Computed example of a mutant assay.
Amino acid sequence: MANYFLTGFPGFIANELIIGLLKESDENVLYCLHLPSMKSKALAAAKKLEKEAGMSKKIILLEGDITQKGLGLEDGKKEFLKRNIDFVWHLAAIYDLSVAYETAYRVNVTGTLNMNHFCEELMNLKRYVYFSPAYIAGTRTGTLLETELERPESFHNHYEETKFEAEILVEEVKKRLPVTIIRPGIVKGKSDTGETSKFDGPYFIMNMFRRLSFLPVIPAIGDGESVVNIVPVEYIISASIYLGHLPSGEGKTYHLTDPHPYKVNDIYRSILWEMNRKKPIGRIPLRLASSSLKLAPVRKFLRVEREALDYFAWKGTFDCTATIRDLEPAGIVCTDFLQTVGSMVGFYKANCENPQYHVKVD
């Protein structure tokens, strides 16, 4: 039996993580922090997850806010958690690529600082697992190592920048706490069903293809030679649960990235074919496409964030040697992206009319 404290509930990855942890042991109890404004959604999610796991009273909801000192928890609850929490999983963050700096800093940096302080007060902490994207690399190029935390000359957006700043704070407490840092690539839905909670990241491409489906020809964008690292959510869950409990995982940083990622050309062509049974014809410069997305009416029509195109030109790859080595005994591997495009597009097509899946594009 173990007591877990999780942030980021009821987000997609947090929900999947809860199911995974409950499957690990039916004795586990999960204390899930959620914003007061998310109370009704958190209650519904907890009820659904417990039903799916065939358990009850295993998910304990706590109202709070990582941007506040003490996480906004009542004193009595905080004292209980200090004595009883074994594992902490910090997933809460602002993931929006177009987020304002002040908002991103408050949640991603100040929130993580408060989480660090909370963890340092826990009496029986066995592991502090922190989620930080692989793309904190910003504009660095070449092969990026799991052992590196180097500040790039610049970042593509405030999300990357503030998550880099937050990881620095977590790296510092590695000296005092049993920390494991998880750096996923761009997360997509489940490999088998395609299920996801929102259409962002690679789903922006689908939004664009759907809006432009009336055109006889759809061109490629840019040279398509950049590599985009996309990973399925079930790989993130199974790998992070294993590594987050692995004794030798303490003090390490892991790239949960696809060891065999595809170029933009391959991803673009495969999604277009699954969406519209078309192949791209012609090519438009990336700069022209990016300039077009600076216009709000264009962004809103296509449902594509301008910042998403930055990854069409980025010239970097993620080394995941330590991850592959440490996961090998468990047989946990990342599924091939092109082999799962069909389920991904299928789920999108079945739900593209549902506004709850779409990210607001301003």
Rank of each mutant, 00 (worst) to 15 (best):
G64K: 00
S98V: 01
L295V: 10
V129R: 06
S343Y: 04
E74Y: 12
K174G: 08
V359S: 04
G8I: 02
E52H: 12
L122D: 01
K78Y: 14
V107C: 07
T321E: 14
P329D: 01
K315G: 11
L113D: 10
G111W: 04
G331T: 01
V217Y: 04
D192K: 07
E146A: 06
K349T: 07
T340M: 10
T162G: 05
P178N: 08
P285C: 10
A45E: 00
V361S: 11
I168C: 07
F204Y: 06
M123A: 08
N207K: 06
A166L: 06
S238R: 14
P133R: 07
Y348P: 08
S343I: 01
N229V: 00
R176V: 07
C334L: 06
K51R: 11
K252E: 14
R303Y: 08
L71A: 11
K82L: 00
K82D: 00
A308K: 09
G8K: 02
T103K: 14
L144Y: 11
D266E: 15
M123I: 10
T253Q: 14
D258Q: 04
G138E: 09
V361Q: 12
H358R: 07
D26G: 14
A100I: 12
G64L: 00
P261V: 02
L97K: 01
E161R: 06
K315E: 14
L256G: 02
I13F: 03
D200N: 14
F5K: 05
G201M: 09
T141V: 13
S25F: 13
P178I: 11
